[in-house]
């Protein structure tokens, strides 16, 4: 069974979005979306680990027996997380100071594990890599969107400190969206994470209904 790239891209970014549809990876989603920059950073780190983990599992899937597949998947995710963590600490230290906190959290995210189980263990190497890439991109989009809403409501800025994450060239992203100092504080506090995520999930469903798409019950997609 092979999935077309078109479907992979659509599923990852929208139709079967990891956060807004599958509702996976809620721990980093809640914890790391206080600002748009944090959401973006967490998303990008996860994207990298997902693409690489999908790639390795697709390569080795012929050798991984059904009984031990879960420990092997976790091993592979943990391996990439450690690689990213060490390499980033040693050679991209400025980035590490911003992202360092988030990287170990990726192991506790069940979205990468979910994609290994439902996609990479059944599909060829290239589509698996693409699935990791676009599921990761969808995750990044969702986290950045949640972070943006919380940041604007909570402290009136958008993409504060983005240049620390992406480099000085991205200074232009840092905006003062609302003329307030301390805004709707609850938006940056933990309950705000649940509220904003819930509103965005509902918003996506409304858009899907308007577009006449059939509503899937629960997590949609490949045999979950």
């Amino acid at each position: 069974m092979t999935t077309s790239y078109r479907t992979i891209v659509r599923d990852g970014l929208w139709d079967n979005n990891g956060v807004l549809c599958q509702m996976l990876g809620m721990c980093p989603t809640m914890a790391m979306t206080g600002t748009a920059t944090n959401g973006l950073g967490m998303g990008l780190a996860t994207l990298l680990v997902m693409a690489l983990s999908n790639l390795l599992v697709a390569i080795f899937r012929g050798y991984i027996t059904h009984e031990v597949r879960i420990p092997v998947y976790i091993l592979i995710v943990a391996f990439w997380v450690t690689v990213v963590d060490l390499a980033c600490n040693a050679w991209m230290h400025e980035l590490y100071k911003v992202l360092g906190l988030f990287i170990p959290l990726i192991v506790s995210n069940c979205l990468p594990l979910g994609r290994l189980e439902v996609f990479a263990s059944r599909e060829p190497v290239m589509p698996s890599f693409m699935d990791g890439l676009f599921m990761g991109a969808g995750f990044t989009l969702a986290l950045t969107a949640i972070g943006a809403v919380r940041e604007v409501l909570g402290q009136g800025t958008l993409f504060a400190d983005a240049s620390l994450l992406l480099g000085p060239a991205f200074k232009f992203l840092e905006m003062k969206a609302l003329p307030i100092d301390a805004g709707f504080l609850v938006a940056i506090l933990p309950p705000g994470g649940f509220l904003v995520t819930g509103i965005l999930v509902a918003g996506k469903r409304i858009l899907d209904i308007r577009a006449g798409k059939p509503l899937a019950d629960g997590p949609a997609g490949h045999g979950v």
């Binding site: 991984i64 031990v68 391996f79 450690t82 060490l86």
Partner: peptide
Amino acid sequence: AFILGVFCFGFGILIASLDLVT
């Protein structure tokens, strides 16, 4: 058990060498 062992050993070696490098 053997398959799981081989994966653990292999990735363990890789991580140990990366630790040395970094």
